[in-house]
Design a protein around this nucleic acid. Structure first.
Ligand code: ZN
Ligand code: ZN
Ligand code: ZN
Ligand code: ZN
Lengths: 166, 166
DNA sequence: TTAGTATTGATATAACATAACATTTTTTAC
DNA sequence: GTAAAAAATGTTATGTTATATCAATACTAA
């Protein structure tokens, strides 16, 4: 991650970002109401920050943003909010980056996979069908019961590849 | 603790395991000689420590072991040795655990996948064929060029599942 | 209300990792 | 063989990520 800023995270294409954020927050509102989860100010705003950014953000980066809005200033504030959002599937953790990113298609349970550009830092999420991938097959063969998968690829995104060519 | 398939050293009897470690070190010796790599005492011993262990080990855990043998006492010692071993494919890094594990089948280039037991901490490595998995397909479709993959599953290993049942 | 539970506030520290520079060892060129 | 260059190690310091703990507050339900 050594070049510019905010790159699209949902695939590598343009989209109406503001509407996308609003929609996602609304869906989270609904989900929390339905499941009697307490979608507090800090939690909602944390999700908002990640949705707006559309980049993977570190916990301390999120915390900086929360500080600006007087929503907390100490690490546990950020980690707790992120923990809540992770548990409820609103965000994912990118292990290779020690960072967090809003889920591109929340609501449905899925095994997310991420494509991380090492040049521009953009992160794209793709759903991998749970039972067709090689990992699940290997697990099944050996009698291992998967509860969570981490599937991440690092490399060059289409945009950055193009820039090298030209 | 006995598992089938592409397992590292878990479950081997003490005698077999010793031989297995010795064999792996010998292979590393040969590889380094062939490729004119400097397989120094610290590097070789670090690989030995990981081979002997039946679990993934953190860098500071490895460092503790090196300390005991007067091979270094400060973090960079361990991280440098681990870096060398990573670069040359003798070990892998498990992102979810911030830990390192000796490769189960070094020599050949492969996309390693790991099955991590959240109960007993055992880690099994399996090779995933690079071009058949869903991740590679997704990447190819979007024009993303993969350089490195992180594929990890957390859950219950067969042994730990059995213990819950009984 | 009142007790119980969930969340937040705050301090401290644990765990993981690297930057920077000095020193030593090994390799290479002459 | 010696000197220069390169690689590895020693050392200090610091940066980064994450959690344990306990006090205070807010929400929930009897
Ligand atoms: Zn998702
Ligand atoms: Zn890019
Ligand atoms: Zn391997
Ligand atoms: Zn187990």
């Amino acid at each position: 991650m050594n070049k510019q800023k905010a790159q699209p995270v949902v695939g590598f294409s343009q989209h109406d970002h503001r509407r996308c954020v609003k929609k996602a927050l609304k869906e989270a509102d609904d989900y929390c109401e339905l499941n009697q989860l307490r979608f507090t100010v800090v939690r909602r705003r944390t999700l908002g920050i990640l949705l707006e950014s559309h980049m993977a953000m570190g916990a301390y980066e999120v915390l900086e943003r929360l500080k600006l809005e007087e929503l907390g200033s100490k690490p546990p504030i950020a980690y707790r909010a992120l923990g809540f959002l992770l548990e409820n599937g609103f965000i994912h953790r990118i292990e290779r980056l020690n960072a967090f990113v809003a889920c591109s298609h929340p609501g449905s349970t899925h095994h997310p996979a991420f494509l991380i550009c090492s040049d521009c830092g953009s992160v794209a999420e793709a759903a991998v069908s749970p039972n067709s991938d090689a990992l699940s097959q290997t697990a099944e063969q050996s009698g291992f019961q998967i509860e969570h998968t981490t599937i991440e690829a690092e490399g060059q995104c289409p945009d950055c590849l193009q820039q090298v060519e030209s």
